[in-house]
Design a protein around this nucleic acid. Sequence first.
DNA 1: CGGCCCCTGTCATGAATCTGTCATCTTGGG
DNA 2: CCCAAGATGACAGATTCATGACAGGGGCCG
Lengths: 239, 239
Amino acid sequence: MNRTTLETMHGKKILVVEDEQPIREMLRFALEREDYQVNEAADAQAARLSMAQQRPNLILLDWMMPKLSGIEFARELNASATLKDIPIIMLTARADEEDKIRGLNVGCDDYLTKPFSTAELIARIRAVLRRTVPGGEDERLLAGGLEINTAAQRVAAGEQWIPLGPTEYRLLLFLVSHPDRVYTRAQVLDRVWGQNVYVEERTVDVHVRRLRKALAPFGADSLIQTVRGSGYRFSTSPA
Amino acid sequence: MNRTTLETMHGKKILVVEDEQPIREMLRFALEREDYQVNEAADAQAARLSMAQQRPNLILLDWMMPKLSGIEFARELNASATLKDIPIIMLTARADEEDKIRGLNVGCDDYLTKPFSTAELIARIRAVLRRTVPGGEDERLLAGGLEINTAAQRVAAGEQWIPLGPTEYRLLLFLVSHPDRVYTRAQVLDRVWGQNVYVEERTVDVHVRRLRKALAPFGADSLIQTVRGSGYRFSTSPA
DNA sequence: CGGCCCCTGTCATGAATCTGTCATCTTGGG
DNA sequence: CCCAAGATGACAGATTCATGACAGGGGCCG
């Protein structure tokens, strides 16, 4: 490969968490051919280490793993404010496990049933990455007097840090990343809570409320606007 | 009130395009149990007719069909300005991945390989519908000093936002989208309120009044013209 | 291991806004 | 001047949203 530099610049990082080495290698081969950067981990512990070193853009997670199962690991990730943004594609051995995944309310973005073709794998990865919030990378977002530091996972107004819970933070990050645009509660749930998670739509209201409450002391609560009958919108121009 | 009930209230319309009748019936059964409104079509021609009568919120499209194949039909839909917003889920018989990839490029939102469980079908439909933007494509409509931003779902005159209720917004959006054309009250009800809704025709008058009232401060109320004995019309040229 | 604290999802309730319909007034045309 | 059609203003009922409270779950620390 003569354009390694170029490719690495665009190549998204994918972490493969899978205990069987042959499958890992197969995945690595297929993914690298598509110019993704691949990291491997044989179990959850190795995955944690890998992520500490380099934050992946997507995780391919095997359902069946020794020690901590894939589903438990997915839960662990979803519980972490820092890692919850990373989309997960679950790999299952049997089709009926798909139902379990949905039933267990795990917030994975998609799943594949073995055996799957590499073409299908690539297609699903692309689809998931396409609709991912571009907030995963370290950056500093500025909007309406707010500064979101994604590396530090903190939000500031002026010199003051605003205390936010994990969900409030992610909600704000999502909205700020897509300003001047209405999102239905269902869409917000999808992109902030994750897919395959069944939560009442009204829960969005409550978190919007909590977010506004936290922003209110800085006069920034009006940035999150209610669009009656539709949903919510972030905008720096007043309603 | 549980989640199912909430979704029921909207009762999304799904068009099933599939040549094999037993499968159509199976799909209808599974979908109606989830309170979706189902229309059936055995081929592309029937599908066109059905859509002309009632615009579906989602299309389940069989890959293998006599005459026009599913993929060609999907292309046709994507080429249509009015129909391209309708999400498509493709049904494929073979696990042949090349077809799947091409399907994705064709612009269908997801696909299912037969045989699939109804649980998976429902899950994917939900996911696609949740992802879908209610207002269709993002647009910026300009007319007579007004600017309608469909993504943000609001209307501006110059630098000022115009506060509108949900129905007023939809009414204005409809009229601006079809300028210089008279619509009867019945037609307006059909397009703005939706089909199968019973309301007095005079209600249109009231909402036109409210819309004009909201537009009046910006001198834009004259854009909505009364055509005595017929209905209303949006036009930038004075009556 | 137990206690404590934070975060979350869900509800019940009250407030705010929207909606459809009437009754009444105005306007336009013949 | 008369009549029909449309414009207005007022309202009560419905929706939709905001808010405060609460119990369960999980993690952290003593």
